[in-house]
Design a protein around this nucleic acid. Structure first.
Length: 640
DNA sequence: ATTAGGG
DNA sequence: CCCTAAT
């Protein structure tokens, strides 16, 4: 056996190829050290941005630009619109001067744009000061003993938007045992009263321990909070427990991670304290899974988004509460900036061409009852104050609004993409169709257009090379398919918005729709300092998205290792994965490690895409061979 | 920047 | 995949 192997290797190919050491620069491009996103903005920046954008859209009329509308896959806010009723509610009238969309948008701008967050000087207040007046949201826990509680967002304004949301076990005993921070999930229903803005959830019961809050729609039949306890251990299962609409394999946890820096910091603290589990692979469940229970308050961080980025502004922001747009923009600055530029006053998209609107037409009167925020996850330590909870929710909401919004119009579940059609043509004006009319606020710039090529494949020419959008779609879809996208009954009739390949090391897709927030328990109350507008930079390094090796990749790896050995990962990388930007030599080394392991365990124990036994055999052989080489420096040297 | 290992 | 120590 040994002989055979040796002969084989000795003759065939285990000769070190004369691949010149890559130059420094070459190497550099193979490295993927955490990149800092320069485009991060705090929630407030984002809000301001949206505001600006909305205003802009009001002027320049949104949409119609095919490009934008083609990517409407991340509706974040849903607006249910109803035909005018006898309420004194705000009535939106379709004016002959613009299309429905602009009308809606403009309405939004009025309400959102004019508001700017003004963090009160005391903990329980986060107020949105609108120009000229101040309104507020009232968030009240109606029944604190029920598992499903209602939170009413009563607006004191002129709009009767009373949103109800259920809070799942605010203090459910089963959750009490959780050592994790509370998880607040606002699923599709925290209504955002259009014109009111005082958010004061006054009656939240005192939060003594980490609990999970799930605020969800009343009408959401479901699921979600049926077994809160099930989420007690793995705190981040929570998300999946919440949404019943689609399987979301722990998307939250998947992308949630603590940055190295933070971890390091934490290490100095109580081992009990903890931050999230992040990996979905049990086997790879990373350390740092302590509960935050005993975590030094000051060290608790607030994360936003599933990507949960550590607070870069802590210390500057008001007591650690900061929002994180995530670092998704860096990869696609163009897209995001394009969207974001709204704040700076530049039109983002070309003014759409409004269809001919007959002024003679009878007006269609619509009433946007409320905007719903599909889903929002918040993790907050038990020791957090109510005030911080409020702020957290507020920020999460703000964040959602912050990505820049676009209005989508849906009729009977179908998205109306032709901005040039008149309401009459689309049937919107039909009385009986009004009920089927829906609006959605969608993030407008966070999604990059899906690349058509796949430079990642190490085997560009190999036919069996995985097609990016096919093979990898699962992951990105999970990301792009946040529950928030499930506009209730709405169905994205045309999924034109293909999920961008996971290739984007910086997943912009993770940005919007959802927000995962961890509130620092600390002196939130004392805070009240307007967060510094650090719209840029954040060393928040996100965990890279997981991208399982395809069989073809494995094959390439095996081949390269057979040739180069197990100690020259840089060369392996250059040789077989030079154009797979997302595979670093460390990745390759790791993969090899797992391959060896995989090859040694029984097929039944293997998971994921099965690797041909043949390859595994080669792995074992090569591994053994090179191990031997290593043992014999002389031989090795000779080979080299 | 790489390598080697532990998590 | 991440994190680190050691090169």
């Amino acid at each position: 056996m040994v002989l055979q192997k040796r002969l084989y290797y000795g003759f065939d190919g285990y000769q070190v190829p004369s691949i010149p050491r890559a130059t420094r620069s070459d190497r550099r491009r193979c490295s993927f050290r955490k990149k800092v996103d320069d485009n991060q903005m705090c929630a407030f920046d984002l809000l301001a941005t949206v505001a600006g954008k909305l205003l802009l859209e009001e002027e320049s009329s949104p949409s119609s630009s095919g490009r934008l509308s083609e990517k409407e896959l991340s509706p974040t806010l849903q607006v249910s619109i109803k035909k005018e009723q006898q309420h004194e509610d705000k009535i939106l009238k379709v004016e002959h001067c613009g299309g429905l969309e602009s009308m809606i948008t403009s309405d939004c701008s009025v309400n959102v744009a004019k508001s700017k967050i003004q963090v009160g000087s005391f903990e329980n207040k986060v107020e949105l000061a609108s120009s000229g007046y101040q309104e507020s949201f009232d968030c009240t826990v109606v029944d604190k003993f029920k598992k499903q509680r209602n939170i009413e967002l009563q607006n004191t304004g002129n709009i009767s938007n009373i949103a109800k949301a259920d809070i799942c076990s605010l203090d459910d005993p089963t959750l009490r045992d959780r050592k994790h921070p509370a998880l607040v999930s606002v699923e599709s229903s925290m209504t955002l009263p259009l014109g009111t803005d005082h958010f004061s959830c006054g009656s939240f019961p005192a939060i003594r321990e980490d609990v999970k809050l799930v605020i969800r729609d009343d009408d959401e039949n479901s699921s979600g909070c049926t077994h809160p306890s099930s989420t007690t251990t793995k705190s981040f299962r929570a998300p999946s427990c919440v949404g019943n609409r689609r399987p979301r394999n722990g998307f939250a946890s998947k992308y949630w991670k603590v940055t190295p820096k933070l971890k390091r910091e934490e290490k100095h603290f109580n081992a009990d304290s903890e931050v999230k589990p992040v990996y979905h692979h049990r086997k790879f469940c990373y350390k740092y899974q302590r509960s935050q229970r005993d975590y030094p308050i000051k060290k608790r961080k607030l994360y936003y988004d599933h990507s949960s980025v550590p607070n870069p502004d802590r210390g500057i922001s008001y007591k650690g509460i900061t929002s994180f747009p995530g670092k998704k923009f860096s990869c696609d600055a163009s897209a995001s900036s394009a969207t974001m530029c709204g704040a700076s006053g530049k039109p983002v998209c070309l003014p759409g061409e409004y269809g001919t609107f007959q002024s003679e037409d009878s007006h269609v009167k619509l009433r946007i009852k409320s905007f719903k925020i599909p889903e929002l996850f918040i993790e907050i330590p038990e020791s957090a104050t109510v005030g911080s909870l409020k702020r957290t929710v507020m920020e999460a909401v703000t964040k959602i609004l912050g990505g820049g919004l676009r209005v989508g119009v849906l009729l009977q579940g179908k998205k109306l993409r032709d901005d040039n059609k008149t309401l009459l043509q689309t049937g919107i004006s039909d009385d009986n169709k009004l009920d089927a009319l829906g609006f959605s606020l969608e993030p407008s710039g966070s999604l990059a257009s899906p690349p058509l090529h796949h430079e990642d494949s190490p085997f560009p020419l190999t036919s069996d090379s995985p097609q990016p959008l096919t093979r990898y779609s699962p992951t990105p879809i999970a990301v792009l398919d946040p529950p928030s996208l499930n506009l209730g009954s709405f169905v994205e009739s045309d999924h034109d918005s293909a999920p961008s390949p996971p290739d984007m090391s910086i997943d912009k897709n993770l940005t919007d729709s959802r927000a995962l927030v961890v509130v620092p328990a600390m002196n939130v109350g004392a805070s009240a300092v307007v967060p510094a507008r650090k719209s840029k930079r954040s060393e928040a390094a996100q965990r890279r998205i997981r991208r399982p090796f395809s069989v073809s990749e494995v094959e390439a790896l095996v081949q390269a290792v057979e040739k180069l050995g197990t100690g020259r990962w840089r060369d392996v990388k250059l040789r077989a994965f030079d154009n797979a930007k997302h595979r670093t030599y460390v990745d390759l080394k790791d993969k090899w490690k797992t391959l060896v392991h995989t090859a040694r365990i029984s097929p039944q124990q293997r998971r994921g895409e099965p690797v041909p036994q043949e390859l595994l055999d080669r792995v074992l052989n090569a591994h053994a061979h090179w191990a031997k080489q290593q043992a014999k420096p002389e031989t090795c040297r000779r080979l080299l």
